[in-house]
Amino acid sequence: MDLPAQDEGLEAAIVRPLAVSAAFEGSEEIAQARDLARVFLTSVQAEHGLPVSKRAMGMTQLAVSELVTNARKHAPGLCVLSLQVAEGAVEVSVWDSSTTLPVVLPADPSRVGQHGLEIVMAICRRFTVQREPVGKRITASIVLADDPGGNAAGRQAM
């Protein structure tokens, strides 16, 4: 696409959106998924000048780890991790082939494990589960900059 010189910023935005995706098949690749999130957010901050707090960096890596782990544990085949910056947040989206929707268990301090979705829901601004033509997609939105009001998830007061 050839655009006039005054539209070079538009061309760059079309060619290089603030998004990245990767497919993962083995549980050993969960660390690679976390690394992808770290490298992506570092690039968002360094190359695009968007603020990414230490909290956002850590929480994004945690959400990636939990969501990719669940996909690898409960669905056969590949899972696809997508990261995209939109509206001051990073959207962490994981697609897997299972049609079974996740269930968040009631709080139980004596239960060992199975707290991944509880953790992700606690650290994100928005959490959605969508059925896809094949499988499902789980998306968590994590605010990039710390909330001056102190709300770690960046949720608006109701």
Rank of each mutant, 00 (worst) to 15 (best):
F127L: 05
A71L: 01
R137Y: 00
L83R: 08
A75I: 10
M59P: 07
T128M: 04
V134A: 15
L144P: 05
V143F: 03
M121Q: 15
R131V: 04
V129N: 00
V92E: 12
R111N: 01
S93T: 13
A122W: 00
A122I: 02
G116C: 15
H115Q: 11
T139M: 02
C124G: 13
T128S: 13
R72H: 07
E132H: 09
R137G: 01
P133C: 03
L81G: 10
D146C: 01
T100P: 00
L83N: 07
S97I: 01
V143L: 10
T128W: 01
G77A: 10
A145N: 02
S98H: 00
C79F: 06
V129R: 00
V85W: 15
G149V: 03
S93Q: 12
I123D: 14
F127I: 06
I142Q: 03
V112D: 08
V90S: 09
R55W: 04
G135T: 08
G88T: 10
E91R: 06
G77L: 07
G77F: 11
V94Q: 02
E132L: 09
G113D: 09
G116P: 00
F127V: 06
Q84F: 02
Q84A: 15
R137M: 08
T69Y: 08
Q130H: 12
S110A: 14
V134H: 13
G58Y: 02
T139F: 01
V143Y: 04
Q61Y: 03
T139V: 15
G113I: 14
V112Q: 12
T139I: 04
V143S: 01
G58T: 12
T128V: 15
G113P: 07
I138Y: 05
A71N: 07
G77Q: 01
V80I: 04
E87S: 14
M59W: 12
A145F: 12
E132A: 12
D108K: 04
H74G: 02
V120H: 00
C79D: 01
S82G: 11
N70G: 03
E118G: 14
A107F: 13
D146V: 00
P148Y: 08
S110R: 04
H115V: 12
I119R: 05
L62M: 13
T99M: 07
S82Q: 14
C79W: 05
A145S: 12
W95F: 11
P109D: 12
A71I: 07
S93H: 04
A75L: 11
V68L: 03
V80F: 05
H74R: 08
T99L: 05
H74M: 00
R131F: 00
V129W: 02
A122M: 04
L78V: 06
T60P: 03
D146G: 03
G77I: 11
A71E: 06
L105A: 07
A140L: 13
S141D: 10
R126V: 05
R131C: 09
T128C: 03
Q61N: 04
D108T: 08
S141G: 09
L117S: 07
I142S: 06
W95V: 08
I123F: 13
M57C: 05
E91F: 11
P109T: 04
G135K: 03
